[in-house]
Design a protein around this nucleic acid. Structure first.
Lengths: 154, 154
DNA sequence: CCCAATGATGGGTCTTCACCTACTAACTGG
DNA sequence: CCAGTTAGTAGGTGAAGACCCATCATTGGG
């Protein structure tokens, strides 16, 4: 009765879009419990993986506008998850560093992400989950390097 | 330099979210060239797959609000892709039927979706693409039956 | 010492999206 | 034939996202 049209289920594009949306919204819901959004997690990940960044580098790495990065970093700073420090040699720059609380929070968020993942991929066996991850990783790498369309007109 | 943090790449949740977003936005861009959006395609698919629907059934099947469905059907009707007809025995109901142009358009859109799919999944071999589709189909079926959280608060 | 470039901000706009309400026309059961 | 319910419709709301610009402090080159 409430079946999805088979025409759509035959399109991988559609499946990716739908399951992706489910993944995003479920993870976002978990983050929201801690008053965080996906970008907050992305920023924390970048800081922990690659070490302290100047704000501008952070924005460039994650591909978002630097004025938006300001707000994200601000949220994280207020929550005590990162430290913002003026660079002593170039006082225009602000170096962002993860705090201990920030690292702990990231570990927490990663656990949540894994929980969502288990919930989402429940019907797949472990090797299948790994295979899905491997395939997606390759697709992601391909998509990420050749974004094709910077932004469709507004 | 603009690498994505490995912590994120290790999370299937993240990969799904990202590739899903890429799939959605690319397909949406193709549809936009015809002044259509994803829901328009979904409605056409439902009509062609399952035959004419009363508007309310359409909304229920696709899981969207009936007031939003009104606008989608209206767009399609204006574009000549569907016919709206008052039910003769219950004149409150409006039966929506795909026109010949609507069917042709859907075929067109499906071709576009396949093109996007080829572009997106280029790094994968054919059997790998099939495998990805099969895995995603199972995940989608699972996600779709147990939505868990109807809607997180607003 | 001045000027152009740079980094961080704050502010604002413009969409999209999901949801929700109220209203009208029409049907149905008592 | 009246009351309550249902279908479609119009409209509004609020959040989220991506984008863009003006401002201000700072720096570095000439």
């Amino acid at each position: 009765m409430s079946e999805t049209p088979p025409s759509l289920l035959g399109l991988t594009t559609y499946l990716l879009s739908k399951t992706g949306k489910a993944a995003r919204s479920r993870l976002a819901a978990r983050l929201a419990e801690r008053d965080l959004r996906l970008w907050h997690m992305a920023v924390l990940s970048a800081l922990v993986d690659f070490g302290p960044h100047v704000q501008r580098e952070l924005a460039a790495r994650l591909g978002i506008d630097r004025s938006d990065m300001v707000k994200i970093v601000d949220d994280l700073a207020v929550a005590g998850l990162v430290d913002r420090a003026r660079d002593t040699i170039d006082r225009r720059r602000v170096t962002v560093t993860p705090t201990r609380a920030g690292r702990a929070m990231l570990a927490d968020l990663q656990a949540e992400a894994l929980a969502v993942q288990q919930e989402l991929l429940a019907p797949l066996t472990s090797p299948e989950q790994a295979q899905l991850a491997a395939l997606l990783r390759r697709v992601h790498a391909h998509v990420h390097e050749g974004p094709e369309e910077p932004r469709s007109g507004r």
